[in-house]
């Protein structure tokens, strides 16, 4: 029994960090599901909204000694304000414009972090950020439990949205915007609202990630984060709240936990070939899933399946 336990959890710190990453991708994926899968907004700048929260939290904690809750609130607000601005910009743009604008937002956040060294530390980094509580060896496990709770809350909210009048408005906006407009639905306000709300969530997740890494670097905000989130969501099913969870377990869970923990790879492979192979597989997954199973593993929305079922009767 002890041997099995050692095999499964032989490197608890590694396992916990891998699970942090997994939960972060799941949380961001659920929020992206509300943007892309429900409202039809292709946000390609997830890393930027997340990073805005991460760095706001870090700057307030490191430079101004602001308490945890206030810093987390500010991180949430930073993501929300950035999301509202992005939503205002993209509200009347087509998909190409949305791609450009959201990528531009992420790039601006990245450039601002690199350029404003007095606040962000630039490439040298910003730290250290500690957990808001200390219960000894179990602090990181408690933080993981909090992350599970936050992700669970996001999942619960996404499921609620699907069944609410607000969800119907979002779906109408995403499915047929001209029709929703002609029915006098407030499409523009809806887009700005959902971008602000979900980006605030991304900012909050960024704030919660700060204590995990302790030290912040601009390289943590590369496009790889966005690619991981999109891959997880697309693979699991972009129209389903559980899609991000299923997809993240099959991608991040496989690569960042299972293989790293249980497959004895040489160090040089882990440093170069492994992350490169992971990205190649993520890229290939995006292509194959969208070409041959566009709605991912879980398929279409429950609502649409229900309506389709009724129409057959």
């Amino acid at each position: 029994m002890s041997a099995v336990w050692d095999y499964l959890f032989g490197s608890p710190a590694f396992l916990i960090f891998g699970t942090y990453t997994l939960m972060m991708i799941v949380g961001l994926g659920i929020l992206l599901h509300l943007q892309l899968g429900v409202t039809g907004i292709g946000n390609f700048g997830v890393a930027g909204f997340w990073g805005a929260g991460l760095y706001t939290f870090g700057i307030l904690q490191v430079h101004y000694d602001v308490g945890f809750w206030l810093a987390l609130l500010a991180a949430t607000a930073a993501g929300g304000v950035l999301g509202a601005i992005a939503g205002w910009v993209i509200a009347d743009l087509d998909d190409d414009g949305v791609l450009a604008a959201t990528l531009a937002v992420a790039t601006i956040v990245f450039l601002a972090i690199e350029s404003e060294k007095d606040f962000t530390g630039g490439r040298v980094g910003l730290g250290t950020i500690d957990f808001p509580f200390d219960i000894g060896e179990r602090t990181d496990l408690a933080w993981l439990a909090i992350l599970f709770g936050v992700t669970g809350l996001l999942l619960w909210y996404a499921r609620r949205v699907h069944r609410s009048p607000y969800g119907r408005l979002l779906i109408a906006t995403g499915t047929n915007e001209p029709l929703a407009r002609s029915l006098r639905k407030p499409v523009k306000r809806t887009k700005v609202g959902i971008m602000a709300l979900t980006s605030a969530g991304m900012g909050a997740l960024g704030g919660l990630y700060g204590p995990i890494v302790h030290f912040l670097f601009p390289t943590q905000l590369t496009v790889a984060i966005t690619v991981s989130v999109i891959t997880a969501l697309v693979l699991g099913g972009q129209q389903r709240p559980w899609g991000a969870f299923i997809g993240a377990v099959l991608t991040v869970g496989l690569f960042d936990i299972a293989i790293k923990l249980y497959v004895p790879l040489p160090r040089e492979v882990l440093e170069h070939a492994f992350p490169v192979t992971k990205q190649i597989i993520f890229g290939a997954l995006l292509i194959f899933v969208l070409l041959f199973r566009p709605l991912g593993i879980l398929g279409r929305m429950r609502r649409e399946r229900h309506v389709k079922g009724l129409s057959r009767v």
Binding site: D94, D95, D96, I230, I280, F282, G283, I287
Partner: peptide, 19 residues
């Protein structure tokens, strides 16, 4: 395939080629 999906496919292709 829809426009957003084609953009995501091209993002996937970009990642695949880059790595």
């Amino acid at each position: 395939v829809g426009t957003v999906e084609v953009i995501i496919i091209s993002l996937g292709l970009s990642v695949l080629l880059r790595y």
